[in-house]
Simulated scan of single mutants.
Amino acid sequence: MSRSTLLRLIRALPDPAPAVPRVLGIDEFALRKGHVYATILVDIETRRPVDLLPDRTVESVRCWLADHPGVKIVWRDRSASYAEAARLGAPDAIHVADRFHLWQNLADAVEKTVLQHRALLPEPQPPSSPARAVVLPPIAAEPRRTGRLSDRVREQHAAVHALRQDGFSLRVIARKLGLARGTVRRLARAKDPDELLVGRWTGRTSILDP
């Protein structure tokens, strides 16, 4: 037979059904960032994709797990939706927080804490030996105002105020930007984004104080 016929016959064969993974990774990905998200399912042990779901809802993930029994470990981020879906669809599976999201959550928490309490950090002690002293630039008392968190706050603050000037309500702005109404309200009330980065938390007691 010809090459074209052979390829046509091969393409006509049904795809083999993938085996249900013992360790299933669940995560979201953006089809249109900030607007449309879907879910990818990965066999963690073979590192191969298993399936794609058209959204990231509890029902979609729950139905997939219910239709594919045998998952022993669910490897996921800390999303409440995926946690609920796994609890309903695979009630006997063990939940594991994956390493990437643990590091990401830790980095975000540390960055936010340092920004909040930077003004309270003491100045460094002068070196004990003048002969080996290294001249360092003075550290300002003001908190650091650059970085992922502060940049994100500045961008959101500018976007909220631009939409407010166009006459949009807080509800509409929250829907357009994909933010909670409380977050939009705080951004709208702040005249300067630095108020959101420092002023609100300076001097406030925290479980980290001890």
Rank of each mutant, 00 (worst) to 15 (best):
Q116P: 05
N105S: 13
V71Y: 03
Q125K: 13
L120N: 12
A119M: 01
H117A: 04
R78E: 09
L120V: 10
L102A: 12
P130Q: 01
I73Q: 06
A97P: 03
R118E: 05
C63G: 15
A107K: 02
V74W: 03
T57S: 12
Q104V: 10
A133F: 05
W103L: 15
G89N: 09
G89S: 11
P54F: 05
V135K: 06
P54R: 12
Q104P: 01
R56L: 06
V71A: 01
F100G: 07
I73C: 05
D92Q: 15
L106E: 11
S128N: 08
A93E: 00
K112A: 08
P137A: 05
D67I: 02
D55A: 06
H95V: 08
A85R: 02
P137T: 01
V71N: 01
G70C: 11
V96K: 09
E84R: 12
L121H: 07
V134N: 00
P137L: 03
A97G: 09
A83W: 02
D55H: 02
L115N: 02
R62C: 14
P69I: 15
N105T: 10
R56M: 07
A90I: 12
Q104R: 13
I73G: 02
L136D: 08
V71P: 05
A97Y: 10
A131Y: 01
T57H: 03
P69F: 14
L106K: 05
L106I: 14
L136V: 04
T113K: 05
L115C: 03
A85Y: 06
A93S: 14
K72I: 09
W103R: 15
D92R: 15
D92M: 11
S128R: 14
A86I: 08
H68C: 00
P122V: 06
Q116H: 13
D98R: 06
R62M: 13
A131R: 01
P69E: 14
C63H: 14
V134T: 06
A85P: 09
D55I: 10
R56Y: 00
R78Y: 06
L65P: 07
H101Q: 13
L88I: 11
R62N: 10
A66Y: 02
P130W: 09
F100Y: 14
Y82S: 03
E123M: 11
A80R: 15
P124K: 13
P130L: 00
Q116D: 15
P91T: 13
R99E: 07
V135I: 07
T57F: 05
V58Y: 00
L65N: 04
P91K: 13
A86G: 09
R87Q: 15
A133S: 04
D55L: 00
D108N: 00
L65I: 11
V58C: 04
A83Q: 01
R87M: 12
L88H: 09
S79F: 12
P130K: 05
E59Y: 07
R76A: 15
A83H: 05
E59R: 08
S79K: 10
A90G: 10
V58W: 01
H101A: 12
W103M: 15
L136M: 04
H68V: 01
S79R: 11
H117R: 11
L65Y: 09
P126N: 11
V74M: 02
L115W: 02
H117L: 01
